[in-house]
């Protein structure tokens, strides 16, 4: 295992994060704070509690997931797309690195950044709404698993995209709608039965549900189902990445 190679990619990517601190961390934190001000404090005070959880507090896990999902995808996709765009990918391809090592470096850095942002958003939320975390271990586990899984998805998008427009396409047209409709701001139990069934096809439902359970011990689906679904999604993304490197899709001519 080329641990120094992994470390080099990881440090390089994290260095980019800290070099562009405003864009990397301040921006998602600011937009989340705005969500809390509008949905948590302003509108939330007039909303009924859901499952005995005040609305402002109810949306915290969903908002963290919203941020973590979009950050994971955009960080990882940009991380691998940028060297492809500039041509510096030659260095990665000609280095004594295995597929797993390259993925650990890029996805690890993207996921780390997402976890950091998720924790910052969580701390920020505590200033706006009363917050309790019933199962901190599970909360952290869901946060890390979600960050890793969606960073893997972002990595795939970064390799698939052949322009900056495509890089934004999936996050804007797929990830954001799925997140909004995945129970970030409501419980899917509030929906009519038909839409509840439809919602179960949305992978984000399982992420938000499991994450929310770690806070309030209440979720739309069981904890086991959430964990299994994240694992399935991770395996699918890993298999696709394995295929990409094996075939050289969009990486090697």
């Amino acid at each position: 295992m080329n641990f120094r190679g992994i470390e080099a990619i990881y440090n390089f990517e994290m260095g980019r994060t800290f070099r562009t601190l405003g864009q990397s961390i301040a921006s998602p934190v600011l937009s989340t704070v705005l969500y809390f001000i509008v949905f948590g404090s302003a509108i939330g005070s007039r909303m009924e509690a859901i499952d005995d959880v005040p609305y402002g507090a109810f949306i915290v896990p969903g908002l963290i997931m919203l941020t973590v999902l979009s950050q994971s995808v955009s960080n990882a996709s940009f991380g691998i797309y940028f060297p492809r765009f500039t041509g510096t990918i030659y260095e990665i391809l000609s280095a004594p690195l295995s597929v797993v090592e390259v993925v650990i470096g890029y996805v690890g850095a993207a996921a780390t950044k997402s976890v950091i942002i998720g924790v910052i958003v969580l701390i920020t939320a505590a200033f706006f709404v009363p917050l309790r975390v019933a199962h901190p271990f599970w909360m952290l586990l869901f946060l890390i698993m979600t960050s890793v899984t969606f960073s893997l998805l972002g990595f795939i998008i970064g390799i698939w995209a052949d322009g900056f427009e495509k890089l934004q396409l999936i996050p804007l047209l797929v990830i954001t709608p799925l997140t909004f409709l995945g129970g970030s701001f409501y419980s899917i139990n509030l929906l009519p039965p038909f839409w509840q069934t439809i919602s179960l096809a949305n992978p984000v439902v399982y992420l938000v549900s499991g994450f929310r359970w770690s806070f309030y011990e209440r979720g739309d689906v069981s904890l086991t189902t959430s964990v299994v679904m994240i694992c399935v999604f991770t395996l699918i993304c890993s298999a696709i990445i394995g295929w990409i490197f094996k075939t050289g899709y969009r990486l090697k001519k």
């Binding site: 080099a8 260095g15 041509g87 510096t88 030659y90 004594p96």
Partner: peptide, 29 residues
């Protein structure tokens, strides 16, 4: 192997020191 490609493909915003250190790390040194 060390490779100097034809195109000047570099990380524009990195310092000379950092980019050379990065390359060494990639090769496990």
């Amino acid at each position: 192997i060390g490779l100097v490609p034809q195109e000047l493909t570099t990380d524009a915003f990195e310092s000379v020191w950092n980019t050379v250190t990065f390359s060494r790390g990639l090769f496990g040194k």
